[in-house]
Computed example of a mutant assay.
Amino acid sequence: MTELKTVGMYREMYADRRKGRHDELPSLAESFTDRVIEDRAEIAAYMRSAPGVFDVLDVLTDLVGGTERIMSASSLISDGEWIWRVDSVHYLANYGLDIPEEFLRHVRGRKYTPPTEVDDSDEFDSAVLQYF
């Protein structure tokens, strides 16, 4: 089975769904850091431009600021190895949240250029649906 690594996905994003779902994800509140990520903007640009793999028509309120509305927030994006949500990009770009070193190395190794498409197999689709 295809295993996708998550980035910028937090338990609180799934709080209104089945209790206990995605307890393995980090807490948003515990993910703030003082660590400076010099290329945070480039990382966010990579995340924004990777292919969408599951579209959701929703509007969610920013979990940190509480006022900004994020269109299609639950939509999923992937580069074939990692998966994240549209609102993940918002949080990682706008707040001092930590980004896993493994993901940073991955994006830098790709020279900030995501693939234009990802695997379209039943196995990949099944892995994606774990996060909706």
Rank of each mutant, 00 (worst) to 15 (best):
V59F: 01
S88F: 13
S75H: 09
E81F: 02
L92S: 11
I83Y: 03
S88M: 13
R69W: 00
L60I: 02
E81N: 13
V89W: 04
T67S: 14
T67Q: 12
L76P: 07
L63R: 15
G66A: 13
G66Y: 12
Y91E: 02
L92A: 09
S88N: 10
D79F: 01
L92T: 08
T67H: 14
I83C: 05
E81Y: 02
R69I: 00
V86L: 06
V89Q: 03
A93V: 01
I77P: 03
I83P: 01
I70T: 05
G65L: 10
W82P: 08
I70D: 02
L60S: 04
T61S: 14
L92P: 06
E68G: 03
M71L: 13
Y91L: 15
I77D: 00
T61L: 08
W84A: 03
L92V: 11
R69S: 06
L63D: 01
H90W: 15
W82C: 05
L76A: 08
L92F: 08
L76M: 12
Y91G: 05
S88Y: 10
A73Y: 06
L63P: 15
E68R: 15
S78V: 03
S74W: 05
Y91M: 13
E81C: 02
V64K: 09
I70R: 09
V86E: 12
S78W: 04
W82R: 07
A73R: 06
G80F: 06
D62A: 12
I83K: 09
S78G: 07
W84R: 12
A93Q: 15
E81T: 07
I77F: 02
D79V: 01
W84K: 10
G80M: 12
I83H: 06
W82N: 10
L63N: 01
S88V: 09
R69G: 00
I77K: 14
S75D: 07
W84L: 06
H90Q: 08
D87S: 04
A73M: 08
S78F: 02
S72H: 15
I83D: 01
G66I: 13
I83S: 04
A93T: 02
S72Q: 14
L60Q: 12
V64W: 10
R85I: 01
S78C: 05
Y91K: 06
I70E: 02
T61G: 13
G66N: 14
L76Y: 10
I77R: 14
E68P: 00
S72C: 14
W84G: 03
V64L: 12
W82Q: 07
I70Y: 07
V89L: 03
R69K: 15
S75Q: 10
V59E: 10
H90V: 08
L76N: 11
G80S: 08
V86W: 01
L92Y: 06
S88R: 15
T67P: 00
V86C: 07
V59G: 05
R85Y: 02
R69N: 03
L76G: 09
V89T: 09
W84S: 05
D62E: 11
G65M: 11
A93Y: 04
I83R: 10
D79A: 00
S72R: 11
D62N: 14
G80N: 08
V64A: 06
Y91P: 07
R69D: 01
S88T: 12
